[in-house]
């Protein structure tokens, strides 16, 4: 399954599942929960961290955490 780390700039997905349970609770509190949408807004120079819009919250996280969040890609035409 794809993860947030594999999103391309401007691409969206729906959060499905976390690879491990030790996802920081802070991230959940920002709205990073299964069923919510996530969009990759920018990638920092040197390709890390990632700047996301998760369920309306704008946050940046490092790639290794993004790899733990599995998503289902949303095709652009379905938006």
């Amino acid at each position: 399954m794809a993860t947030v780390a594999q999103l391309k700039q401007g691409q969206k997905g729906i959060i499905k599942h976390f690879v491990e349970y030790r996802i920081p609770i802070k991230l959940l509190e920002m709205g990073c929960l299964p069923g919510n949408s996530v969009e990759l807004l920018h990638i920092a120079p040197l390709s890390d961290p990632l700047y996301l819009n998760v369920n309306g919250s704008h946050i940046a996280i490092r790639k290794h955490i993004a790899e733990k969040i599995e998503i289902e890609l949303v095709a652009p035409e379905s938006l």
């Binding site: 920081p24 802070k26 991230l27 920002m30 700047y51 919250s57 704008h58 946050i59 940046a60 955490i65």
Partner: peptide, 11 residues
Amino acid sequence: SRSFFMIEMPA
């Protein structure tokens, strides 16, 4: 230490 780097990008 596991680093859970996260920062809000405010408007």
